Simulated scan of single mutants.
Amino acid sequence: MSQAALSTLLILLVLLATLYTIYAGNRDLIRARAWGELSRRALPFLALLVMASTVLFVRNLQQGWAMLAWFAAFGLLIVLSSVLSVPAEERKAGRAFRRGDYAAAADLYRELVERRPLARHYAFLGAALGAAGRLEESVEASTEAINRDPEYGLAYYNRALVLRQLRKKSRARKDLERALETDLPRRFRSAVRRQLEELR
């Protein structure tokens, strides 16, 4: 196999991996037909794709500085696209949640659902409200996420955690079972199975 054919094959593999990664992490946006939001989330992957597709051109340049300039330009592009891929208010809400300021996170997520009423934002609002101890509001927000996208597994998981706190174990079990039937991210699946074992 020639070097050009091998490079083309690698670029195609990067393209397929990029498309799968975008799809796997954003199925809810595809179902909601939130194309603008989806394209924004895809920015870092598209930057990597452009980088991979230009590697042949840069490799053929004889100047050593060209490769360094190419790396620097694409490094900057990837960092910039990563920052721009998540809206500032969503990053701010996520930071508040991670530092344990759940009331502030809930307020910020509430603003997000008013501007962009996506299932993921309602699910994050439900998680923040639950962590802040506002359990009934948390159940309502998670239920709204489920109503907007019945395949958004994180909403079932969040609601189940709160239902357990409310001692509604039967409903919590149903939500956990349903979460496993949806597009729940892999990293949550073992936690769901543990929760189900505890409820038996």
Rank of each mutant, 00 (worst) to 15 (best):
V50D: 08
L6A: 15
S170H: 07
R116S: 05
A32E: 11
L199M: 10
L29H: 09
G94W: 15
S190N: 11
G64R: 15
G126R: 11
T143R: 14
A119C: 03
L77I: 00
V113Y: 05
V79G: 13
A47C: 05
D28C: 05
R116C: 04
E181M: 12
Y156G: 00
Y102I: 11
A179T: 06
D107L: 12
A17Q: 10
P44C: 08
F71C: 11
K174W: 12
R148H: 14
S142N: 15
E114V: 08
V162I: 08
V86T: 13
R189E: 02
G25E: 01
V113R: 06
M1H: 14
Y152K: 13
Y109A: 03
L46S: 03
A73K: 14
R27M: 03
S2K: 14
W65C: 02
R120P: 05
K174R: 06
G25F: 00
A72F: 04
E111R: 11
R173T: 07
A160N: 02
S39Y: 07
R91A: 02
R110F: 12
L84Y: 08
I22K: 00
L49H: 02
L56E: 05
Q3T: 15
A131L: 09
S85Y: 12
I22R: 00
A127C: 09
E177S: 05
L196P: 10
M67R: 12
R167Y: 02
A17V: 11
T18P: 03
L12E: 12
E89Q: 14
K174C: 03
R189G: 02
A52R: 02
P87M: 02
L6S: 15
A145V: 05
S39I: 06
L16E: 12
L84E: 04
A123R: 10
V83F: 13
G130W: 15
Q165K: 09
L56S: 05
K168I: 02
A42R: 00
G36K: 03
A106G: 01
A103D: 07
A172Y: 04
L61Y: 10
R98W: 15
S7C: 14
L6K: 14
L180R: 08
S39L: 08
L29A: 10
V58P: 01
S53P: 01
R200I: 10
L135D: 09
T18W: 07
S85W: 11
I11M: 10
A96G: 11
G133D: 04
G153W: 04
Y152F: 15
L61H: 10
L48R: 06
A72L: 13
S82C: 11
A119R: 03
A66N: 08
Y102F: 15
L108V: 10
S190K: 13
E89G: 09
L154V: 11
R189N: 04
A42Q: 03
A34N: 10
L38H: 06
R134C: 09
L112D: 04
Y157N: 01
Y23Q: 03
L68A: 09
A93E: 03
E177F: 00
R193G: 05
S2M: 14
W35N: 13
L199S: 06
W70Q: 03
L56Q: 07
D107I: 13
D101V: 13
Q3P: 14
A4V: 15
L199W: 10
E90W: 15
L154N: 06
P185M: 05
A24W: 01
R27V: 04
V162F: 13
